[in-house]
Amino acid sequence: MTKTLLVTGAGGVGKTTIAAAVGVIAAREGLRTLVVTVDPARRLASALGISHLGDEPTPHVDEPLLWAAMLDAAASWRAVAMRHADPDVATRLADNEFFQAASEHFPASQSYAAADQAATFVQARAWDLVVVDTPPSGGGIDFFAAPAQMADLVGGRLLRWITGGPLPGRKLLYNRAARPMLRVADSILGSNLLERVAEFLVDLRTTYDGVARRGREIEKVMRESSIVVITTADPVPVREAVKFYRELPGLASTPEAVIFNRSLPDAWANPSVPPKTTAELRHIAELWGSETLRQRDMREEFSARYGATVATVPLSDEPLTDLDGLALLMSQGSGIPWERIGVG
């Protein structure tokens, strides 16, 4: 039975680092582990032994039970088209100039593609644990709503809105006389653009059955996964973490823990200053002391308000260039519910 851990949270909080570090710990505990990342920093990618984008899991040279895969978020629509459309439609879709716009405007497509790929790895049953670093597009929580949103999109919602009624065939689409909406759009945008967009959407619709069916499988994998939320003690990512605690129970399951990354040790809150300390150093120690207090208050408030298991991973000055560094960082963490996230 493959266990799955989804590592979520706002962008910029060290989500990828923690996903990688959990993977290293799991592999060293004897679990065959795959870490799936989306956009790692270069140093982290090389620590994991992956150098290029691609969907193939790569075994680590020095760590026998660890694999890593780096997903290409930009390839998302292409992957959906190739998987679920007839070959000639797939080629037409893949070459379509509206692809990029649609994938930028519809972050769910990136999340869908990442979730789809992660679910494929889980279903392969080749690993004991699959750790998924979720893409930050659309604010993180959208990852869990992506399968349903994607099915809705390709299912013709946009087409129905454009035509103001039934799903059109190619011919019906051009009968604009009866459709005031299309006349308005024509006058603003010019008719050429409108036709090209509509053709794209008609093609996209042929993938509906495949996307919807696969979406249900992906949702099943998500519901059976454990989830941890990563944040730092800053207002913006904490607001994002709160959203996960409020909204996730309806979409998947309650997070196992919120991990405050880059936490300062409690002992720094009121450091005893040796008598001969210079004023400059005393001042710096006071600054970090006030920061430590602020962080601690924020964690305590989160725990009290949402009944969350609150864990910490310390702020580190070590550049993370190898697996030992990642493992060390994680082992200095406290409060991490290892068993509940499938490790140990």
Partner: peptide
Amino acid sequence: VRRFGAVARAFDALATAAPA
């Protein structure tokens, strides 16, 4: 243009698939 709501929705749908 009286049915602004419907027009805006249709326009927004178009804009999802059209760049810029």
